[in-house]
Structures are given as C-alpha cells and as structure tokens.
C-alpha cells in the first residue's frame, strides 16, 4: 500500500527512521555509503506500510520520499 524511497546520496546513517517506524519496516542494510556507514533499507514484504510519513518527517537529511 505505502512505499518509501531512500535517497542514498543524502542519507547519513543516523538511523532515526529505523527507531521511528511504528511497524519496524526500515532496517539497517549491508550496503555502505562512501563514508563506510551502513545504509537503511525498506523491507515491507507483507504490505504493512500505511504511508504515515513519520520516518520522512523526522529524517534530518530529507532522504526519504513517501508514496501511497
């Protein structure tokens, strides 16, 4: 239902979104950015995301876009 896209060039791996998502759909991934920090990935196998945009509102780097 909902979908988020993470802009990896803006993400600084602060993991605020990981702690914010009420359903725990955002996780640390194994991919790293140019600084060696582990990026985040959106993992929504059961279509649980309702596009509440709480992750995007708390993202300090405007790295998350939300679609519904």
């Amino acid at each position: 239902m909902g979908l988020i896209k993470v802009n990896n060039s803006r993400c600084k791996s602060c993991y605020i979104c990981v702690n914010t998502c009420p359903k725990g759909l955002i996780k640390k991934s194994n991919k790293t950015n140019r600084l060696g920090d582990y990026l985040v990935e959106f993992d929504d196998k059961n279509n649980e995301c309702v596009a509440c945009a709480m992750c995007a509102k708390r993202c300090p780097d405007l790295a998350i876009e939300v679609y519904k």
Partner: peptide
C-alpha cells in the same frame, strides 16, 4: 502512486546538507 511526502520545491535540486 501518489507522492505523500517529497522534497519542498524551494529546495535546490541537488542539495546535500
């Protein structure tokens, strides 16, 4: 799909904080 939350238009396109 419709965008619910996106970058404001008055931000520069290629900005990085």
């Amino acid at each position: 799909m419709q965008a619910v939350f996106s970058t404001p238009k008055s931000m520069k396109e290629d900005f990085k904080f």
